[in-house]
Every structure is written in C-alpha cells, then in structure tokens.
Design a protein around this nucleic acid. Sequence first.
DNA 1: GAGCTCTTCTTACC
DNA 2: ACTGGTAAGAAGAGCTC
Length: 823
Amino acid sequence: MEIKFIPIDYDSFDYKGRNYMKMVGRDEKGKRIVVIDSFEPYFWAILKEGTSEKRIKEMQKKMSKISVEGADRITWIEKTEVHEKNFLGKKVRAIKIFITNYKDAHAIADKLDFEEIEYRREYDLGMITKYIFEKGVSPLSWFKVSGELLNNSAELGGIDSSLDVSTCIKADKIEPIAKENFNPKIVAFDIEADEFELGKGEIVMVSVVGKEFKRVLTWKKAKNVPDFVQCYKDEADMLEAFSETIKELEPDILVGYFSDGFDMPYLRARADKNHVKLDLGIDGKNPLFARGKYPSARIFGPVHVDIFRFIETVYAQYLHSETLGLDEVASELLGENKLDFDHKHSSKIDDDGWAEYFKYNLQDSVLTYKLAEKLWPDMLEFSKVIQEPLFDITRAGMSQLLEHYILHNLKSYDEIAEKRPIHDEIESRRGRERVEGAFVFQPTPGLYENLAMFDFTSMHTSIIVSFNISKATLQDKNSKDSYESPEVDYQGKKEKFYFSKKVGFLPDIVKKLIEKRKEYKKEYKQNPNPLSKARSNAFKVLSAAVHGYIGFFGARYYSLESSASILAFVRKYNKEIIDKVSAHGYNVAYADTDSVAFTLNNHSKKEVLELLKRLNDELPGIMELELEDFYVRGIWVTKRTGELGAKKKYALLGENGKLKIRGFETVRRDWCALSRELQDEVLEKILREGKPDNALKKVQDVLEKLKKRKIDKEKLIIKSQLRKPIEEYKAISPHVTIAKRMHELGMPIDVGGLIGFYISEPQSHSRKSLIRDRAKLPEEPGEYDIEYYLEHQIIPAVENIFQVFGIKKEDLLGKKQKSLMEF
DNA sequence: GAGCTCTTCTTACC
DNA sequence: ACTGGTAAGAAGAGCTC
C-alpha cells in the first residue's frame, strides 16, 4: 500500500538483535499512523594515508569476523565498504563499517585496533540522528511511504499489536514529497498537588485543555463546582481517567509548563504509589525519564513538550520578563495572566475555595495551550531546519541545536563527523585560560545631543565566513593562500593564526545559514506571518550562536585558535570603525563590541548615510555595517567609584520618542521597584527636557515621601535569584539568608527561584549590624529602614545621573534630610 | 571595631 | 555542564591596626 505521511516522533526498537525505527505521525487525512523502517547502522574507520589496497582487503577480511556479545544479543560487523570521504576538510580513505546493532557501535569500534586506522568516527551519534541522516526522513516534512500494512501480523515480533494505533506500515520505500501545512493537535495539561516536593502530597486535580476541550479532573468532592469539572472516586481513579482522556483526544503534542521538572515526575510518582499505569502514549509504557539538567519525560505517541524549556533556550534573551514563570511569560507573549489564587492545603479549602482552585488550574492549562499554539511555528521551523524531532529540539541547548544543524548538513560535503569530546578533553578545555574578548569604549560622562549609532550585522558570524575560520581550515603555518588573523595573546605568547582560503565546510554551512536568514527576513518583511517570522528567527538564533559554539568546551568543532582569531577580528574592525568615524569629523561617544555611537556635530543625516556606505565599501567579505538609528539625546554617567565613565550603561532617546536604556539599575531586577521607577523617570525627564530641573524635583519629592515612611513596602522589595543550592554559598548574602529562612519555614524554594526581601530597621542603635541580619521576608512584619533605602537604593540610583549636571548628593537630599542622618 | 582591600555573587551588555 | 567574553556594583570575608 501507499500513503502520505508526516513523521512527528521517532523511537527505535530491536528485533532479533537488529535496529528498527518506528515513527508516529499523520497521514493526509489526519489519521494517526505508525511507520516502521529498517536501517543499516554503520560508523567509519578513517585510514592512515598510504595504506595499501592489499592491507585494506586484509583488514576488511579480519573485520568480518569481529563481534561483541552482550547480555541479550550478539552484534557483528555485517559488511564493510571502502569510500573516498572528507574528514576535517581533508580527503581521506575510510572503511564504512556496517554493524547489526548500533547500540554496540562503541564496543565494536573499541575492538578495531588496527594500526592503519587513524580515527574511528560517527559511533557516538544518537540513533535517531543517524537514521534521519542516512535515510533523509526528516521530522515534520511530508513523505510518500509504500510498504506493507501490518495487521496483527507476527512480523517484527508483532510490533503493530503492541502499538495502540489502527494503521501501522512497514516501509519499503520512503520518498519526500512537496506538501506544506500541518496543524498539529495540541493538548495542554497541568496538575495541582498538596505538597510541593515531588510525589509527597496527593495530586488533587489535573486540567486538560485542547482546541475545543476544557476539563478539570479531580477526586475532591465539593459543592457548586463549575461544569468543566469531572469528579472521580479517588486519586488512582483520576489518574487513570487522565490517561484515558489523553488517549481519546489523541494529541500530537502533549504540552505542559515546567512539566519535565514538576508535572510529569509528580504524576509518575503518584501513579506508582497508587499502583496504576501512567499510560499516555501508544506503546503502553510509563513515561521514560532521561538524565539531564531536568529529567526529560518521554512518551511515544503524543510528543511530550515542556514549553518552558523551549522558551528558556530560544526565547529568554528576547523576553523582558524577569522570571520565566508561566504568569510573566504568558503576560508578555499572550497578554493574559494566571488567575489569583492563594494556595492552601486541600484540607483547608471550602466549597467556594474549590471552585476557585478548579478555575485557577484550568487557566494554567489554557495559558499553556495558547503558548504552545503561538510558538508552534517556531517549534516546527526549528525541527525542520535542524532536522531533529520535536522532543529533542524543544529540550536541547543552543550548542546542541547548532551542532545538529551542522551534522545534518555534512552530507553535501561528504564529511565524516568529528567526535564528541570525551571526559579528559572536556576537562582540559574547561580549564584553559580565557581568550581576550571584545573592545568596549571608555565613554566620557555627559549629556549628548544628536547622535547616530552604527552596528555590524551578525559580526562574529560574518567574520567566520569572511575569513573562513574554523578548526578544519586552520593552517599549521603561514601558507601563501591563507587569511591572517590579527596578533593575539594566546597562552602567554603573541601569535597570529592562518586560515586556508579554500572554503571550509563549517564556514560554508554558516554562510548558507546567514543567506537563509536574510532570505527569510526579507520574506517576512514582504509578507509578515508567524511562519516566516519563525523561520527567520530560527536562522537568526542559530547564526548568532556559531562563535559561542566554537568556543564551547563540549563542541565537536571546538577550536580555541578560531575563537581567539574571531575575537581579534572583532576588536580590529570595531576600532577601525571608531577611528574612521572620528576621522570624518564625528565625535565618538561610545562603542561596544560591534557598535559605535557618535554625535553628528554639524553633519546631516544624509552625510551619515554616505559615510556608512563608504565604510561598507571598505569592509571585507560579507561583513556589513548598518545604521542602528538616530537619537535626539543620550546620557553616559560615571562609575559609582571614580571619575571614569561607566561602560555598558547609557540611555538614549530615539527620534520616535522611545527610550533605549541599557545597563542602568532600572533594567536590573535586583533593585527595588522604587529605585527602578524613579531612575526611569529621571532618565526620561532629563532626556526629553534636556535639563535636570523637573527630574530633581521628582527625586526630592520621593525622598520626602520615603523620609515620612509614606512609601509602600511593596515598592521596596529587593529580589535576587538563588542560583545554586544554599549550602554551596561561600558568601552569605541577604538573599541566601532569606532562602535559608524560607526553607526552615517549609516554603517552596528551589534553585533558580527569585528570593524577595526588604531591609528592616536595626534592632540596636549602637551596634552596626550586617545587612543580611536585617533582611526580612516581604510578609514578615517590621518597619523598613529609611536610611538603608536612602543610602543604598535611591541615592545610588540617581546620584551619577545628576552628577552630569554638577548636582551633588547634598543637593538631592536638601538641608532637612541632612539633619536626619545626624539624628 | 573601623577602615580598608579582596572575593563572591548577581545581573547586565553585546 | 549543556554558546562566548566584558563590565558594574552590592555585600560579605578577611585583613591590619
């Protein structure tokens, strides 16, 4: 039979010691189907140069006798082929070694101790990656599958009977076809439990939300429950009903928010405790938890996506939210919030309370559903572009995403993949000295008028392409046809590095990445829609990560020489632009890495654009400088200590009236709201008005209120993140002290959580206590310490700004406030 | 225990 | 441990006298 098929998730299984792939997806009518495919796993033995044909034949013969024996299978080398390939850009002869079971690839590779083998490669790729690479069956693209319909067949050990799906096909042939569009069925879920600690309390409810489906499953009896609530006998009964509900809805994606870290492991723990199965997939298995930063909960059938993890790696840097909690993220991306609800143990909830609780729980799933719907184009594009399944791309870090993109693109270069670094290699890479980074211009504090800013587009990446920089193109010494890096301090020596002019596979892959990014950006601008935006964004995010990847200790294509060279070029071109802009009669105010800001003096905008064109004409390769914007005013301030201008701290007023504030306390979440709001207002007034008069009045007004204790305590809460387990801290700062106290009080705190506190008045007047001893939880009774907030929050936030106008701290405080301190 | 520098820590920028 | 380096700044740690 023949069928159109879009694969969504992949899983391997063994039959008689051999590997098969089972893929779950949809046919063109939207029916869920499973396609089974065989494949011939292999890895490479790269031969030393000059190995004789005779010797190769001998080795092949010996290889045909190699096998390893495991607990439940024997794996052997089935056949070998000799190929001309490339490895790190060099032509090599390599033996392609086909084995009967890929799980034993490492063990077989270890047995190949022939002297003529220089490297053994590609036994460390994931099985699914290997399958997709070899067969070209990429996720979320359409294929024509011809094969045999398995119907309670004994074939492959009766695999089709073990799967809860009506159509299961054993493929003979899988060919790509052009067919766009796929709308997945998304179902979101969220649980509420009596205890925060995984599995400790009972799960009191589970909400499930689909396109036209809203339900809360519970076993708690309450009066006047909303009609979306379905009540069950007990927790076990509810858990089974949850599995049933998911099966009936048959989603492609089962999505949660932080569900790898909370909902799934909790459900699993409670299911075990109640001796019921958490049967969410089509293979009758409990969710599997893979190791990692968070355990990844995997089910087969629907893909379990923890949308929080995808947001964390791909979106966090573009979001303004201070935490990545559901409430803030939904508020920013959807303009909707969680419902207010005061969490209580279920024994203390009355009928009205339950009704609220159910609504709250449902809303969490509604938000999660909407987030998944909104981010679907992004997930789809990432999966298609990187050619890895949804399950993986929603959980992978940036380096893994890029690495898989590279790996799947090696095919057209006939490249054998480099190996992943092993333990010792990682240790030595991590222990190495840092290479010198970018240049940051030392600004002169002051108020500037009439500015422009230029910046390089994807500077690091365009340098990699323009100078062909990579591990494989690095030359031993200066050869005639090579690019020369600027001189760098490298491991205690001054050095230059040389990169071949023959285009390397990695710079070429990156070049295409940038080209696609441009193409899709253009496409998006011509026809703005979520899909083209997502596609453009996927390429943007990937191309931005290339330099970081090359310097990352875990990378297959790690190259410190490359990283040092890229950064040397970054410094060189930034400084060159600064010099050229100055030489043309502009006054450079600031520069950081890939940007330069300058005042126009008497030049027109037209002249600025002409200068930009000239600068671009002088740039090599694909390097490109663009106009960031024109600005009406800008302010740079001194550092807190000393006279020097502070770097990475400035505020600009755009011609469109928008403020661009960088580095100031107002953009830092570890300052209290009062300081941040006041500083924001001060900057805005000064930039709009060009003088500090009204801003000064505002400050004095706030100081007056603070002095009279008329400021709401809420505005004085300082928040700081707990970034590691409490016991690992050497310095016990206020937020660590508070975290300890919260822990003692049995409040839910976890690594990554934001700890809020305020500073209260000192107990005794004589003894100067540590600040941490005066830190109190927001809800703890007490008076805030006026002097602390004055001296440590308000004044520091505005002092340096007014200093630009010669206004001193005393002028801010006025005479009356001065006497307060004596008092 | 005051006054100083150094270290640790968080959060920003690009 | 899960992209890189540069930087500001608060508060504690640790030292001297």
